Amino acid sequence: MKKTPSDEQLQLDNQLCFALYSASLQMTKAYKPLLKDIGLTYPQYLAMLVLWERDGITVGEISARLLTEPGSLTPLLKRLEAEGLIRRTRSSHDERVVELHLTDVGRAMKARAQNFPACMLECTQQTPDALLALRDQLVSLRSALLKSS
């Protein structure tokens, strides 16, 4: 059976979506031993990155930053609270709003993650400039996809 151009377009290895998906899986796998050392999962790490940038944000704000639904974050945030890394409190201005605050333990964890970027740079075997360019391309792609959805 002869392959047509449309057959080629539908081959797995020719799909951008698969390249992104499989790279994401491998990136998460590369982070696993680093995160195990500090007791976080990858989604928890992403949430902590946001909180290290800006302590005291709301669940809605962290949800927007992580491009996820607030309800899907609730179990993750409850686990971070149970582990003593954050405090969840109702806003004094609007009790429907939940604010997130780092504990001293959560703040101190940031120092333990300081070497992660260097470890990932080594793991990827890329130059810093190449990774920055790739990140910028992916951010641009994500922005375009957000506009189209």
Rank of each mutant, 00 (worst) to 15 (best):
D94F: 02
G39K: 09
L85T: 01
I86F: 12
T89F: 15
I38Q: 07
V97H: 08
C17V: 15
Y21K: 08
P43S: 04
Q15R: 15
Q26V: 01
E81L: 01
G60R: 08
V97R: 10
S72D: 01
S72T: 00
K32C: 00
V98I: 10
L34T: 01
Y42P: 03
R88F: 00
E53G: 08
P75Q: 05
S92H: 09
Q15H: 14
G56E: 08
T58E: 00
E83I: 12
P70T: 01
I38D: 04
R79F: 04
T41M: 05
W52L: 08
A19L: 13
R96N: 11
P33V: 07
L25G: 10
E81D: 15
R54N: 13
E53I: 01
L85E: 04
L85I: 00
I86S: 10
K36A: 08
L67T: 07
T28H: 03
Y21L: 09
S91I: 07
L77W: 02
L46M: 10
L20A: 05
R87M: 13
Q15T: 13
A30N: 11
I86H: 06
L12G: 12
H93V: 09
Y45W: 07
D13K: 02
G84E: 14
K32G: 01
L49M: 03
L12A: 07
K29A: 10
R54V: 02
G39T: 05
A23H: 05
R96K: 07
I57W: 11
